[in-house]
């Protein structure tokens, strides 16, 4: 079994490569879109005091813990042929999986961003008031000031995206050469009692998680050093 796993990992198994390719394409796309939604959402929430902030932050926190199968179910019902967006024929495609993941990940990025920003907002706001800038310019400055810890929240989103299985199985359908990703392939291969490909994919997933975590760790250390310096 070990020999077969190594052959799969280092050989030129086209299906393994294709599955990894689809997975990365899906995760990168979902993370980018989620960052575009989640960062402004989080900054707006963290940097400002406004009416309804408490309820918005409670909703965001709830969505951060949204069970993937619930996100999958909602997106499935919306994209289904009998659903409101059925005409688009998006179900069982990579874009459908990206939509479900954006529903899952953008609240996570927003929540983490809001936490980062709320710690720094007072000093940034003071500076802005001092030099007389506000509105969109102040938002832009906040994003610029917090860009390094934001990378951490985006990478956390990516980690969630690549490891998620319930929602992508429901809206992607695990279709070979099309929507089959690492997690759904591992589940399927295990159900079929074929463990070699499952173990090989598991190793690849672990390696990617390790790289992402190392990046997060380095960024955190870097910011800590910057602050103490």
């Amino acid at each position: 079994m070990i020999k077969q796993v190594l052959e799969l990992l280092f050989g030129a198994d086209p299906e393994l490569r294709q599955i990894i390719g689809v997975t990365l394409r899906m995760s990168v796309m979902s993370t980018l879109i989620s960052a575009l939604i989640g960062i402004p959402w989080g900054v707006a929430m963290g940097a400002n005091q406004f009416k309804g902030k408490a309820i918005l932050s409670r909703i965001t926190n709830t969505l951060m813990g949204l069970p993937p199968v619930v996100a999958g179910l909602i997106v499935f019902l919306v994209l289904s042929r009998s659903g409101p967006l059925g005409k688009l024929s998006l179900l069982y495609s990579v874009p459908a999986m990206v939509i479900a993941q954006v529903v899952l990940i953008s609240p996570i990025i927003a929540g983490m961003t809001a936490n980062i920003v709320s710690l720094r907002a007072p000093s940034i706001n003071e500076t802005c008031a001092g030099i007389g800038i506000n509105g969109w310019k102040r938002l832009w400055l906040t994003i610029k000031e917090c860009r390094i810890p934001f990378v951490t929240s985006v990478l956390a989103g990516f980690g969630r995206s690549i490891a998620e299985v319930g929602a992508v199985q429901m809206v992607g359908g695990n279709i070979q050469f099309k929507t089959r990703v690492m997690t759904t392939a591992i589940m399927m291969q295990t159900n079929m009692g074929r463990f070699e490909l499952a173990v090989a994919l598991g190793i690849v997933l672990l390696i990617i998680s390790f790289i992402v975590n190392s990046l997060v760790h380095r960024i955190q250390e870097q910011t800590l050093r910057d602050r103490t310096a």
């Binding site: 359908g173 695990n174 279709i175 070979q176 759904t184 392939a185 399927m188």
Partner: peptide, 9 residues
């Protein structure tokens, strides 16, 4: 298209 899933799915 191959779903790799059960009959119901």
């Amino acid at each position: 298209e191959s779903t790799g899933s059960g009959m119901g799915a």
